[in-house]
Nucleic acid binder design. Structure first.
Lengths: 223, 223
DNA sequence: GTATCCGTCAATGCATACATAAAAACATTT
DNA sequence: AAATGTTTTTATGTATGCATTGACGGATAC
């Protein structure tokens, strides 16, 4: 997962800043003027500003006149919005993949990701678990092949990333979630679209409820 | 619907270009270097470039190195992607609005939009019909109150706008579509979430099928 | 006539310059 | 000391300059 050679400074700035936000090194509420960011990244304001426009489009930051960038915090309501959309989109995509009855070879990335989740769970390696979980969802969307959906879901994942990582450490190991992935995968392999949709919906609903429950209990109103 | 006072040149450029694309004054496939656009809009390259980044994020244009902007054409597959997402999202939003049992006053914008559709249909004014149709969908999303969903659906509407306007003139008057809106509205007013979801789904599926049928029959492979 | 090579042109990425306007710091008055 | 007015600093929006690099056209070779 080494950094790819960045072609332009705008891309470079975009990816570095995105990563810093996702990894919580630029935490929610963090604020800084553009010249400061530019200096930190070792480039002029122009490419930084253009990268920030993209990040703003991704819903990760807000550009506040005269005070620079602000990293947007996530409130429980934001998570509700995000999970509602995911609950509507992903089960449809999964059902469509099931219906397409891909052969085992094409489903390999999903098996791989699910195996990785189980392995990570066994080692209680939450970072690895989350990465594998992400990969499962991403690969599934890839198989479905609706680029717009994939892109949008990815930006939602990005937005939710911090909250997911934070809550992951505030609750029991995600045993249930891992099992559900196995079930989803089986119903996809069986080509049972209706079952896939139903199981995936349940999976998303439960995950949302659990996450919101943790936020509620821990009084984490934004992060 | 006069132009609002634009605060910055970037906003100005963004909105003018977006409108030109939606209204087909910059047709799909149109290509021009940034300096040319800048001159046309009477500003320097900087704000134009930044506006173009936003339009690229909206999926309306592509920035091609060394050749400037290109207005993206829409293929039938794009329409399939768009309608698939709309079919997954809008019925959920509508069902949720039905469940919320808003009182008549809050539903007024929907009644208004539906009335306008019927009036426009009676006068065979397709532009007014399309505008009212858009408004109905937009207001419904507004009532639902998921800002991310609203925003995303809006960008999809923007992307699909040209195709919708083009096909509207290649087929019979949208009588069925208008009637369906009336039915949807009634089921929302009745607070019947399940019925709303089902009717809306049917509405979207039928609209998609019809539109794709027209594209197919007229061999319009991109527009 | 066709294909290849080279030179010129032009578009973009980025840096920098500048005007504007807000905010912050400071001074002055009461 | 508080409040008000003034100065200074600073961030952003926009324009412009410059280097790089690809595109295009013409010339040359075959």
């Amino acid at each position: 997962m080494a950094k790819e050679a960045k072609v332009t400074r705008v891309d470079d700035a975009y990816e570095r800043l995105r990563e810093e936000i996702l990894e919580n090194r630029m935490p929610p509420g963090f604020q800084a003027p553009e010249p400061e960011i530019a200096e930190r990244l070792g480039m002029s304001r122009t490419p930084v500003h253009e990268a920030l426009i993209r990040l703003e489009g991704d819903g990760l930051v807000a550009l506040v006149p005269r005070r620079g960038v602000r990293v947007l915090p996530l409130a429980p309501d934001d998570m509700r919005e995000i999970y509602e959309i995911l609950t509507a989109l992903e089960p449809e995509a999964a059902a469509s993949v099931a219906e397409a009855r891909f052969d085992a070879e094409l489903l390999a990335p999903l098996h791989q990701a699910t195996d990785d989740m189980e392995r990570a769970l066994a080692k209680a390696d939450l970072d690895a678990w989350a990465a594998a979980d992400d990969r499962f969802h991403r690969r599934l969307l890839d198989l479905h092949g609706n680029g717009r959906m994939t892109g949008f879901v990815q930006t939602l994942f990005d937005q939710a990333h911090r909250a997911r990582m934070a809550t992951l450490r505030l609750r029991d190991l995600p045993v249930k979630s891992t099992e559900e992935h196995r079930v989803i995968l089986r119903s996809i392999a069986d080509g049972d679209a209706e079952e896939t949709r139903s199981v995936f919906r349940t999976h998303r609903r439960r995950a949302a409820k659990e996450l919101l429950g943790v936020l509620e209990r821990t009084r984490l109103t934004h992060l």
